[in-house]
């Protein structure tokens, strides 16, 4: 898992995509799965195709997907952050505390986002400055951040957020299009540009493939990684604002277990857990797939826990399938 000695990979400047490779690429495969799920769902339940229920479906995954965008970059660079759900808990708790002090809506949003950013800085400092393995550090901060929420709240909850605060998690920008969903799409475009169209994004891939070579090529490995941890913290802070607004309350158990769902989303999106490859398109499609699966099965009265079997199987299946195919092909030749 922490094996850093990958085989050398070929990284061309410009990737020529023959039609065949384009058709069998991971995002296309995911797109097919997503369309299939959409069609299956509309046959399975008459309620699925109504615009309002589709809009409701987006609420199930947008907050996680917003974090998954930043997590994708972090995993591509060869690190991981398991503390994202706890950052949500801490940021939400800080917003609740500010609320008790009479802070208004703009202040609450700022506090949520800044707390998230601060948590990201803390993770980034421990990993890049002290040179610690991110998986252990973030398991530690995962307990630590949520632990602070438990100290502050115990078995209580913060309630009574102002009505103007409701907009972020419950408001609609236009007709059935929610604010959360629009924010997710905007973030997805920003992250697409950042990862696939800038030098910074190229550095992220290089670091994930070979940190040593990256350093010798003049890439500031530690600084890039630090920035990615900050980004992940920031996105978790934004997700905290959305979720707190949607639930209109803060409990220390808020978003419990989300870290694994976010990682599942990223890996399902074709990002290699070993780092070095992946795409934002894939992650966005994976978010839609997970949303469609949970919502479609929900309409059919399948309990949440059974859906998780489906998601877990999907995760292993989509990763195992290409490996099995490759093995069969190698055996034949």
């Amino acid at each position: 898992m922490t094996d850093t000695t990958h085989e050398a990979r070929h990284i061309p400047d410009r990737i020529d995509t023959p039609l065949r490779a384009a058709i069998f690429s991971w995002p296309v495969l995911l797109l097919v799965v997503a369309i299939a799920l959409f069609v299956l769902n509309s046959f399975a339940s008459p309620y699925f195709l109504s615009p309002w229920s589709l809009s409701d479906a987006t609420f199930n995954f947008t907050e996680k997907a917003i974090i998954a965008l930043a997590m994708a970059l972090l995993i591509i660079s060869g690190e991981i952050d398991l503390s994202v759900a706890s950052i949500i808990a801490l940021a939400s708790t800080m917003m609740g505390l500010a609320l008790q002090l009479g802070v208004g809506t703009p202040g609450l949003v700022a506090i949520g986002i800044v707390t998230g950013l601060f948590c990201g800085v803390f993770n980034g400092f421990l990993v890049t400055r002290l040179g610690l393995p991110s998986i252990v550090v973030t398991i530690g901060t995962m307990s630590f951040f949520r632990g602070i929420s438990f100290i502050v709240l115990g078995d209580q909850a913060f309630k009574g957020y102002p009505a103007s605060f409701d907009f972020f998690g419950q408001g609609y920008v236009w007709w059935v299009v929610s604010f959360e969903f629009v924010l997710f799409l905007v973030c997805a475009v920003i992250y697409y540009v950042l990862l696939h169209r800038t030098n910074f994004g190229r550095h992220v891939f290089v670091i994930g493939n070979n940190p040593m070579a990256a350093r010798f090529s003049g890439v500031r490995v530690e600084r890039v990684k630090f920035f990615l941890f900050c980004l992940t913290g920031l996105m978790s802070g934004i997700a905290a604002v959305l979720l707190t607004s949607r639930l209109a309350s803060t409990r220390p158990s808020i978003a419990l277990g989300w870290e694994l769902e976010v990682v599942t989303m990223v890996v399902l999106g074709g990002v290699s857990i070993l780092g070095g490859s992946g795409s934002i398109q894939g992650v966005v499609l994976a978010a839609f797939i997970m949303g469609l699966v949970t919502f479609g099965l929900g309409l059919l009265n399948v309990p949440g826990i059974v859906m998780s079997i489906f998601i877990g199987t999907l995760l292993i299946f989509v990763i195992a399938l290409p490996i099995v195919f490759r093995m069969l092909r190698e055996r034949r030749s």
């Binding site: 898992m1 599942t264 890996v267 826990i305 079997i309 877990g312 199987t313 292993i316 990763i319």
Partner: peptide
């Protein structure tokens, strides 16, 4: 299959509980 352990057990974590 050579799948990273963290991915496999992340999957079976949810499957077994389900």
């Amino acid at each position: 299959l050579g799948i990273p352990a963290i991915v496999v057990t992340l999957g079976t974590l949810t499957i077994y509980r389900g």
